[in-house]
């Protein structure tokens, strides 16, 4: 889910919220006679008249198709993957493109981290996150793992990944998950 769709959601939710609160409070105030000089009834006969005109079905049809398209695009944007498949590498120019499998690069970095003591498993991916290209590594560590060791290894691997990919706009993020139970034999204390 990108920043754009969240911004749209916020604006729509705000406008709908203000409208619903105003309509609800207005309706209650009208029902309990709290609004001075309120009319006894509201008439919207123009709306019923409009539905009987010749142009009405054309207008509803056109607006309907437009709304279905907008609604579907809006809905799909909520579930669109943020993943980046291929990375253009430094050195690409008009004579040719150098590209790399983005997920494979991140996965390889994660695999390397599994050699660190206390790291049980890893996964890696490249994502587009809030306007940044991010190499995201997820590590599952043992409950007994030494955080300092894991952190140092994660930082070193991230720096190596930056060096290999060679793109200035690449960012990194390593997320640690702690396994519920120790898998490897308990260390001697």
């Amino acid at each position: 889910m990108g920043r754009g769709v969240i911004a749209v959601d916020r604006v729509v939710a705000f406008v709908l919220g203000v409208g619903l609160v105003a309509a609800g409070a207005g309706g209650l105030g009208w029902r309990f006679d709290l609004i001075p000089d309120a009319p006894e009834r509201l008439r919207f006969s123009w709306l019923a008249d409009a539905t009987r005109t010749a142009w009405w079905p054309w207008a509803t049809g056109a607006a309907g198709v437009l709304l279905v398209l907008i609604g579907l695009i809006w809905l799909i944007r909520h579930f669109r993957s943020r993943g980046v498949r291929r990375l253009q590498l430094a050195g690409s120019d008009h004579t040719g493109l150098l590209t790399a499998d983005a997920k494979a690069a991140a996965t390889a970095a994660g695999d390397r981290l599994t050699q660190t003591a206390g790291v049980r498993s890893s996964s890696g991916r490249m994502v587009s996150d809030r306007g940044q290209l991010v190499a995201e590594l997820n590590l599952t560590i043992e409950p007994t793992a030494d955080l300092g060791t894991v952190q140092a290894a994660a930082e070193q691997t991230s720096h190596d990944l930056h060096r290999i990919v060679g793109r200035d706009d690449l960012h990194h993020r390593v997320q640690l998950h702690v396994a519920r139970h120790e898998k490897t034999p308990a260390r001697v204390r």
Binding site: I6, P57, T60, A62, G64
Partner: peptide, 29 residues
């Protein structure tokens, strides 16, 4: 996840539903 995302999903579904009503009436006419 942003707390507003479920509202956005609901509003998107409602937009599609309103659109279907419009298309239905055009086809009915």
């Amino acid at each position: 996840t942003a707390a507003v995302a479920p509202v956005g999903i609901l509003a998107a579904v409602a937009t599609v539903a309103i659109g279907v009503v419009g298309v239905h009436d055009a086809l009915q006419a």
